[in-house]
């Protein structure tokens, strides 16, 4: 059952990621990216990362992607022609890299099955770890988030200020 979930979400992730990369329409790209985040979240739930899965959905799909969508709408970017001649080269390179990773893994003969997980204790342990061992980094990240918030507000707001000055 779980295998099926992994299979579906894996295939879905690859397909929606391909659509993100290939779609010529930005809005479609945004929705595909949302879809791929959803598939990732499902996969993470299966791997025992329930807190991060929910964070991914709430924060990414809910907030960050909404921001993307908003910007895409606001900027009114049409779908633009892409550089077709390079497509073939890029895909060749991509297939070479993926294939060699596959070969590497096969070659190494490393086998490790995923562990069964229980979905009740991880959030608490994560919190303890975050606020006891990594509290300094949590503070640093908080500062970065604050700085980015202030920065983006200033960046966008300075337009109205400069317009007033004009």
């Amino acid at each position: 059952m779980l295998d099926l979930v992994f299979l579906i979400s894996g295939v879905g992730l690859v397909l929606s990621a391909l659509n993100v990369a290939l779609s010529t329409h930005p809005v479609r790209s945004v929705f595909s990216l949302m879809l791929s985040f959803m598939f990732t979240a499902v996969m993470w739930l299966g791997l025992g990362a329930e807190f991060l899965a929910l964070a991914l959905i709430f924060i990414y799909v809910g907030a960050v992607m909404a921001l993307f969508l908003f910007v895409v709408f606001m900027l009114n970017v049409d779908h633009l022609p892409r550089a077709l001649p390079r497509m073939a080269t890029l895909f060749m390179l991509g297939i070479i890299v993926s294939g060699s990773v596959y070969l590497l893994l096969e070659h190494s003969g490393w086998q490790a099955e995923l562990r069964k997980v229980s979905l009740n204790e991880h959030t608490r342990q994560l919190g303890l770890l975050l606020y006891r061992d990594y509290w300094l980094w949590a503070e640093v990240v908080a500062c970065i988030l604050l700085a980015s918030m202030v920065g983006s507000i200033l960046l966008v707001k300075s337009r109205s200020l400069s317009q007033k000055n004009d």
């Binding site: 990414y60 960050v64 910007v71 983006s152």
Partner: peptide
């Protein structure tokens, strides 16, 4: 998330 906000 921070990067996306600043980038946009």
């Amino acid at each position: 998330a921070a990067e996306a906000a600043i980038g946009l």
